[in-house]
Amino acid sequence: MALLELRDLSVSYGEVRAVEGLSLTVEPGEVVTLLGSNGAGKSTTLKAISGLVRPRAGQILFEGRSLMGCRPEEIVRRGVAHVPEGRRVFPGLTARENIMLGASNRSGLSKRQIRAEADAMFELFPDIARFGDALGWTLSGGQLQMVALARGLMAKPRLLLLDEPSLGLAPVIVQAVFRIIAEVRRRGTTVFLIEQNARMGLSVADRGYVLESGRLALSGTPEALWANDDISAAYLGGSRAVSAAG
């Protein structure tokens, strides 16, 4: 059974059809990436999974059970953590406090236990260990991404949703972030990753899907996707020109 399955998912904002009839699966232990240019509907797909937007039609199954109609709080309690675009680290809380709040979906933990777990997180994220007591708004983009990832992991998710972790980060930081994603996967967490940085996304993924204007355009292994011209077209344009020429 797939860990996550989307069946004919459609999401609209008013009249704008952001996602149309999207079906895909994520198997346990995989890293799956969803690619596509800005506005293709990638973030909307993640928001539908984590309950932030209500789909117009279709079905979302997690571990075989529907997530449709559940509030975000319930969905994260069932084991789906969402690290959203823009990191959304609470600016007025410290890095450690942000990370500790990641465990809000797990009940029965004392503050001391949570703090110990948060401190253990810093081993996976040595770059931010020194900034545990720094307030969120003082952190740099790379540090914010590390805090957001650590906070997501504190939920002990079975499925981690990552929305553009490379966004606005310098290449060396992007590398560090993706090393961590590879490590997260090695430790057994399934990852569903959205990326505009197609190279990086496919470098860690087992499989990839490509969205274009809300519809599934392509899917397959990273090698197969790179071999297809359309992935470049989806990002740099020209698909219409190419098809017209051909």
């Binding site: 932030l52 975000p72 709080e73 994260v76 953590a81 959203p84 709040l101 990641g102 809000s104 979906n105």
Partner: peptide, 8 residues
């Protein structure tokens, strides 16, 4: 919104 994503 972020708070709700964390289960708060």
């Amino acid at each position: 919104e972020m708070a709700s994503l964390l289960g708060i």
